[in-house]
Simulated assay, not measured.
Amino acid sequence: MKMKPTMSIYSLITILLLCSSLVSTMAAQTVEESLATKMKKKKGSSSSSQPKRRDSVTCYNRRSKCFLKHITCPNECPEIKPKYSNSKACFLDCYSPKCEAVCRMRKPNCNGSGAACYDPRFIGGDGIVFYFHGKSNQHFALVSDTNLQINARFIGHRPAGRTRDFTWIQSLGIVLGTHSFTLEATKAEKWTDEVDHLRLTYDGYPLTLPEGHYSKWGSRSSSGNGMIRVERTSRRNSVLVILRDVAEIFVNVVPITEEDNLVHNYQIPNNDSFAHLEVQFRFIELSPEVEGILGRTYRPDFKNPAKVGVEMPVVGGDEEYRTSSILSPDCKNCVFSIGKSNLSAPKIPMEFGTIDCTKMDGCRK
């Protein structure tokens, strides 16, 4: 007896055709997906390789060679105010002979011209490194000009057996015209970066500067913006102080670290981190009569007494530059006069170059 086939030849052919169609469809989808993935990667790669949008900078001072010229920032620092505080920012020096945007950090460079850091180590306007020790809990004039007075209060510690104090700059007092501004590092038993150790005043009143990168404050006058502006350059403990058309001051508050204590044998007590300031000044214009521990180094006729080649060249001046308070311009060599109009006084335009004084024997432009 013959068995009937369970599937006809036509049914088998139909199934084979359906399977072939399904395989073709799946293969086409796979190719299409592969092409789409490649296109997406190519597009992503193309967009990531494109340079970031670059800011432009300009100057609004009519005396500047860059007045109202729009200069594009370099690729290396495309933003005037980068998101991260440790990134270089785009900057246009309105008073430089070169009208070009450059990159720079928004923190003090302790190896650059105008720096005052450590146990105070200064780098003068002439590029020469020198030390000025002063005395603990006393005030000294860093800069005294016809319209500007900048004093510093020193804190210090003298271990048993030493003949002098270790000293650091704890605060700055600035008198500009008839207005005053102070900036100080507050005492901290144990240092923490999570606490802001800056205290500010303007014309004798406490000044509140909210925490946060780029938080800012500016003085006001009857004619609009005032002469002093303060801007944070990190969330806490770092600021830029701008004295309009006069100077810029970069400031950090830092402690004496355990490593510093061991290396230099400071022997600081356990209940004080000796929070102090690292400072770098950038002056726009100064008079030929400018005085002060740092200010005199910007005079065209100044001969620095610091001995080149000496490991720690110390200069004197305690008696000549000691002041009675953080805001008093009463040192023996001070030239500032409160309330005196100095608009007609001759000024020396500062020439700015990149100076990095990493050697103890000084440096030159």
Score class of each variant (00 low, 15 high):
134 G>V: 10
116 A>S: 11
92 L>H: 00
147 N>S: 10
140 F>H: 08
109 N>D: 07
125 G>C: 05
105 M>K: 12
132 F>N: 06
106 R>G: 04
127 G>D: 04
98 K>N: 08
110 C>G: 01
129 V>K: 11
141 A>K: 04
87 S>E: 15
112 G>A: 12
140 F>K: 13
92 L>Y: 00
124 G>S: 06
117 C>T: 06
104 R>T: 12
95 Y>H: 08
102 V>G: 01
116 A>N: 10
142 L>Q: 11
116 A>D: 09
137 N>W: 13
146 T>Y: 14
121 R>Y: 06
131 Y>S: 02
135 K>C: 05
134 G>E: 00
145 D>E: 10
120 P>L: 04
120 P>Y: 10
110 C>F: 03
126 D>P: 02
110 C>T: 12
140 F>G: 08
119 D>Y: 13
100 E>A: 14
115 A>V: 02
108 P>N: 09
123 I>Y: 02
118 Y>K: 07
92 L>N: 01
140 F>P: 03
106 R>M: 15
116 A>I: 14
93 D>P: 01
109 N>R: 14
115 A>E: 02
104 R>V: 02
145 D>V: 07
133 H>F: 11
117 C>Y: 04
143 V>N: 05
124 G>I: 07
94 C>G: 08
132 F>T: 03
90 C>P: 13
146 T>V: 14
90 C>A: 15
115 A>D: 06
122 F>P: 06
124 G>H: 00
120 P>S: 10
121 R>V: 11
140 F>Q: 07
97 P>G: 04
121 R>T: 08
125 G>K: 08
135 K>R: 14
107 K>M: 10
106 R>N: 14
105 M>N: 12
146 T>R: 13
123 I>W: 00
116 A>W: 02
104 R>K: 15
137 N>D: 13
103 C>F: 05
105 M>W: 11
90 C>I: 08
112 G>R: 09
128 I>G: 05
112 G>D: 05
98 K>S: 08
97 P>Y: 06
135 K>H: 13
129 V>P: 03
127 G>M: 01
146 T>Q: 10
131 Y>H: 06
94 C>D: 02
132 F>W: 14
138 Q>H: 12
107 K>Y: 10
114 G>D: 07
135 K>N: 11
105 M>Q: 11
117 C>E: 08
102 V>R: 15
134 G>K: 08
98 K>R: 12
142 L>G: 00
109 N>W: 12
92 L>M: 02
127 G>K: 02
130 F>A: 01
120 P>I: 01
111 N>P: 05
113 S>M: 14
145 D>T: 10
146 T>M: 08
132 F>E: 04
119 D>N: 15
107 K>E: 14
95 Y>T: 07
136 S>W: 03
117 C>M: 13
129 V>Q: 04
88 K>E: 13
89 A>I: 07
